[in-house]
Design a protein around this nucleic acid. Structure first.
Length: 289
DNA sequence: GGCCAGGCGCGGA
DNA sequence: TCCGCGCATGGC
């Protein structure tokens, strides 16, 4: 397989964009910290890093002070042609693959994913983004690069300074105590161990954290630990399942997850993102055609 | 104005 | 083990 990118100082050049679409990668719901500057330009934030992504004709430029971080972040060394081929053998996915082509599963920071998805529970994406942004602005380090200033995601030490009242003031609501307790647990939690565990054991360990149940756990495993056999089931996936995968109404997320993982196996994570994004964002406009 | 959102923890059967 | 309930807040 040929590399889809080349490195030149601070810039990653994506010269094959058949499996890279910045809009779909960033807006499909896997990441909460990004800014859209215009149709062709996004700023993406992760941990204490950021990158500017610009579409230029049939290429993308990703500019950052730490390009190697973003080669890994955007999973640029994985062959997505083969993944898309596998997904396309499932006829039900064809409309999603066409409408949302070029999604990649990001490799994000574990702490950032744990905190972000505890906040996500029974919440909507706009509010989740607002809470996380307020948290970063208040508790994350101010970083300046090339005249551009932004706030990093708070480190574990910085998170430890935030009280339950503080989290409530950020708008976290009843999740404030979950966040506070999880951060306390993380002080003595070996996150590196999760990478080596299989998904089932990794899941058991992560779900010992306060505020981390089956769905939040699947998101953390998928977006931070690259566990592709995980299938987060939220209210949108329930709708998807009952529209496309079942004759009778099913409400039990564990049953839905089991059946979908049985279908998509090691490609569950990729299939899930296409289904979630399509149902939540694209389906209505698609049907107008 | 009421329903809903990338659900979880808890108590009771 | 499973089920039903309460929960903060604001988008729409």
């Amino acid at each position: 397989m040929e590399k889809i990118y080349s490195l030149n100082n601070n810039i990653i050049n994506i010269n094959d964009i058949s499996n890279f679409n910045a809009t779909h990668i960033l807006e499909c719901g896997q990441i909460f910290r990004y800014n859209k500057l215009n149709e062709n330009c996004y700023i993406v934030f992760s941990k204490n890093e950021f990158a500017k992504i610009t579409k230029i004709n049939d290429t993308y430029q990703i500019e950052s002070s730490n390009p190697n971080y973003f080669v890994n972040f955007f999973d640029l060394n994985t062959n997505y042609s083969q993944i898309i081929y596998k997904l396309s053998t499932h006829k039900v996915l064809i409309p999603m693959l066409n409408a949302a082509s070029g999604i990649r599963i990001l490799k994000q920071d574990p702490i950032e994913m744990i905190i972000s998805f505890i906040i996500s529970a029974n919440n909507n994406i706009k509010r989740i983004q607002a809470i996380i942004n307020r948290m970063c602005e208040k508790y994350g380090k101010l970083i300046t690069f090339n005249g551009f200033s932004y706030h990093a995601f708070p480190t574990l030490n910085e998170l430890q300074q935030i009280s339950i009242e503080d989290f409530k003031n950020l708008g976290a609501g009843y999740r404030a105590k979950y966040l506070f307790n999880a951060i306390k647990q993380l002080q003595t939690f070996n996150l590196n161990e999760i990478y080596a565990l299989n998904s089932e054991n990794a899941s058991k360990k992560l779900q010992t954290l306060s505020g981390v149940g089956p769905k939040v756990c699947d998101c953390i495993l998928l977006f931070a630990f690259n566990k592709q056999d995980c299938f987060p089931v939220d209210t949108w996936i329930k709708k998807v399942y009952n529209s496309y995968f079942s004759e009778t109404f099913e409400d039990n997320p564990a049953v839905i997850r089991k059946n979908l993982v049985h279908i998509f196996k090691n490609y569950s994570g990729y299939a899930q993102q296409y289904l979630f994004y399509y149902k939540r964002t694209l389906e209505k406009t698609e049907n107008l055609n």
